[in-house]
Design a protein around this nucleic acid. Structure first.
Lengths: 162, 162
DNA sequence: CGGCATCCTCAAAGATACTG
DNA sequence: CAGTATCTTTGAGGATGCCG
C-alpha cells in the first residue's frame, strides 16, 4: 500500500549531496481508508502530482519553461518575489522529477538553461484544465467566501440581540 | 493585478471568529512577469485552485464527500492520520470556499454531514485528469529520480579519483 | 552568472485537553 | 458526537554571504 506517512525524507535519504538543499515534504500523506477503497487509491496519485507542482514557485517555472528555454536569471526576474534559494530548490526538484532539463553551457560567464520536458508539457495541458475550472468558479467561490465570512462575523459580533 | 504577495491574512482578516482557526496562506503568490504575460495570468488561477485543494487533507475530504455525504467521525476514521484539528480546519476552509456543504442535524448526540457541492464535483473530474497524468508518468518520474539521486551520490562519493 | 551554505522567521501541522 | 482552545514542533521559505 502507498503508505507515504513515515516517508518524510522519502526516497531513502540518498539525496543530500548538494548540502542541505532540503527537498520539501509538502503534502506527505493521505492514506484514506483502504477499506472503503474505490477512488481512494487515486488520491495517492493526485497527491504525488501535487507534491510535484506545489510549492509556490514550481508552477511558475513550469509555465515559463514550457514556453521556451529559460536561463536562471531570466526566471529569477520573471518570477517576481522568488529568492535565489527557492528558485534553485524548485529547479532542482523539478529537474529531479524529470520535469525539467538543465543545460549548462560551459562558457564564461556560465550560462544555464532550463526547459520543460514533454512530460511537463503534458502537465501544462492539465493545468489549463484546472485554470478553466478556477476561472469558471472564481466568482462563485469568492461570493461563497464573503457569505461565509459575513455570517461568521455577524455571529461573533451579535449572537442574538444585545 | 493579482498581487497576492502581501495578502498573508488575505480577505481582510474578517474571518477570525471561531477562535484562532487559522485559515492557511499556503501558496501565496506567483506574480510572474506581467510583462511577458500570456500564460502567466493563468498561473494565478492555477494557484488559487492549488490553494484550495492543497493542504494535505483537502483532497481526501473532497474525494470522500463527493461519493456520498460523510459524517465528521467517518471522515476522521477514513482519512487516517488526520488530527481532529486539521480535519476541522480543512472542512471549514472547503465549506468557506463553497466546495462543501455542512448539514447539522440537531439531534442528540449531534450529527453533522458534509457533502461536496456540484462545483467540487467538477473539480473531482479534473482531479481524475491529474490522476491519469500521475499514473502514466509514475514510473518515468520514479526512474528520473533514481537516476538523479544516483548521479548526485556518486558525484559526492567520488568526484573523479582520490 | 549561477549557484551552494548558513542563519532566521513564522505559519502550518501535530498533540493534547476541554466543552456544548 | 462534533467540535474549540492552547501549546509545541517543524519545516518551508526568506535574507544574506561566499564561491567556481
Amino acid at each position: 500500500m502507498h503508505d507515504l506517512s513515515p516517508a518524510r525524507s522519502a526516497e531513502g535519504g540518498t539525496f543530500m549531496s548538494q548540502g542541505h538543499i532540503d527537498v520539501p515534504a509538502q503534502v506527505e500523506a493521505i492514506r484514506v481508508g483502504e477499506a472503503e477503497g474505490s477512488s481512494i487509491d487515486k488520491a495517492c496519485s493526485v497527491l504525488e502530482v501535487l507534491n510535484r507542482i506545489s510549492g509556490k514557485w514550481a508552477i511558475g517555472v513550469l509555465l515559463l519553461t514550457t514556453q521556451r528555454p529559460m536561463r536562471f536569471t531570466h526566471l529569477e526576474r520573471e518570477i517576481k518575489g522568488v529568492s535565489r534559494r527557492m528558485l534553485t530548490l524548485t529547479l532542482r526538484n523539478l529537474e529531479r522529477d524529470g520535469l525539467l532539463v538543465r543545460t549548462v553551457y560551459p562558457t564564461v560567464p556560465p550560462r544555464t538553461e532550463y526547459e520543460a520536458t514533454p512530460m511537463a508539457r503534458e502537465l501544462y495541458e492539465t493545468l489549463l484544465v484546472l485554470t478553466g475550472w478556477a476561472d469558471r468558479h472564481r466568482h462563485e467561490i469568492d461570493s461563497a467566501r464573503r457569505v461565509y465570512d459575513e455570517q461568521s462575523t455577524s455571529r461573533a459580533t451579535s449572537t442574538g440581540s444585545p
